[in-house]
Design a protein around this nucleic acid. Structure first.
Lengths: 244, 244
DNA sequence: CGGGAAGTTGAAGAGCGTCAAAAGTAGTGG
DNA sequence: CCACTACTTTTGACGCTCTTCAACTTCCCG
């Protein structure tokens, strides 16, 4: 079960109390990047911090869409189910990513924490009011939505037309690129999700994912460094396999 | 080759000259729905009408993204290619749908007319200026983008987890629902696209699409009424097959 | 009519899924 | 620290859905 907290004030190294958003490491990536320091106060006033353990549900498909979120640490998995249990993971969200941008009354997908994660939660009504008062936030959100749309189309190309090998290669490069965008190392890649998550994201089974990882490892294209860490000795070779 | 025209004024039945957007049949579905009559003038001043024959390219993946579009008649196909020619159709657009919403410098996909189609074309710079002056247009666009995202996720579920049979059934119901939303009949469905388009949209081959159509026809689930028309004798049965 | 594209059908094969079992990993408590 | 359990991952054998390749048919437009 997620834990909901009011946002604590953060401390600078010298002990000075500062606005929590000002200390937020991923603010530049999030919606908040367009707000001035004094405007952040309005955001904080409607915001709750949410701590999640691995596997915690943030919301389920069909739940009333009362809240919007911003991932601040960890990783979140977005998924949809067919009635018989087949699952499609439609995306992984990382710090800075926005969650819940479906202007319907209900969520059309489920969201769960992959590893330990934290999120900023905004009541939808309050955020919508804030948005209409700050068109630049709306513009920022439109930009983020456009990017998500482009990502979704890349994923459709992957799901519809790529082989298992190409899918895995593309997946690893995606993780690498997203880590880099958040200021982390691009190369030894952190892979926090399980085989089941990866399989459901790539439209494969866990067995095929496992076999394909083995195949890439034996081909010298990946070097596992631990349970959740993979090194790419030759990123260009992986790029060649990924295709697009 | 598409033909570019300045937007002609439209005539009411009594011969009165009226603003072309006022006569536009699909205005309620498009971005334009949020604008007052006098605000439409600003839109018309930056707009060019584009007529396309079947197969005409509207733009290609990689082209500089200088224009945005609104489909006003016909149908448009959005697609991406892999270097070796494998193609994924990521969506079909119908009257009222917005095209080009990728705030990058280049288009990340190609757009082509499926049948004879017309579009409203806006220079990107001009439209962006207009958007920043009319936050309600921006809000409308954000809403449309959210809907597209939800559609994209449905399509990922289809591509990653559905069988050929389920894919075809879902596809037909999608066409039916979209026709209805535009005020057309939901049941004898107009299917203007080729087997190749359908195959590349559903992540299948043309042969599998053809075989599956035959199978559905022999099962009494669809009744072809002509080259581009299909009747569903029992829509509920099709819904059962579609799954979600 | 006639020619080219679009669609259908058949036979064979590949890639990935399914089922099953073994091996590895993590957490828990004595 | 080790044993016990539960879960995740890997590996193997086999089967099925969909693809590939090929031939044939139908449709359409000059």
């Amino acid at each position: 079960m997620p834990r909901y907290n009011i946002l604590p004030t953060a401390k600078r190294r010298n002990g000075e109390q500062v606005h929590p958003c000002v200390a937020c490491e991923i603010r530049e990536l999030a919606v908040c990047s367009v707000l001035e320091s004094h405007e952040l106060d309005e955001l904080v006033s409607i915001l709750t911090s949410v701590d999640c353990d691995p596997g915690d549900a943030i919301f389920y498909e069909g739940d009333p869409a009362d809240h919007l979120f911003n991932v601040t640490s960890g990783a979140v998995r977005i998924s949809k189910l067919l009635p018989d249990g087949r699952r499609q993971v439609t995306g992984f969200l990382f710090p800075g990513d926005f969650l819940g941008l479906a202007f319907n009354e209900s969520y059309t997908y489920s969201a769960e924490a992959v590893g330990s994660s934290t999120l900023c939660r905004f009541p939808r009504r309050d955020l919508e009011r804030l948005l209409s008062e700050h068109p630049k936030m709306e513009r920022r959100l439109l930009g983020m939505a456009s990017n998500e749309l482009a990502t979704a189309q890349d994923q459709m190309l992957l799901l519809g037309r790529k082989t298992a090998r190409e899918k895995l290669a593309t997946f690893l490069l995606m993780l690498s690129a997203r880590a880099e965008r958040r200021g982390h190392d691009a190369n030894p890649i952190d892979v926090p999700m399980t085989r089941a998550d990866i399989a459901d994201y790539l439209g494969l089974t866990i067995e095929t994912v496992s076999r394909t990882f083995t195949e890439l490892r034996k081909g010298g294209l990946i070097e596992p460094q631990g349970a959740t860490n993979i090194r790419l000795p030759d990123p260009e070779a992986v790029r060649d396999i990924a295709g697009d």
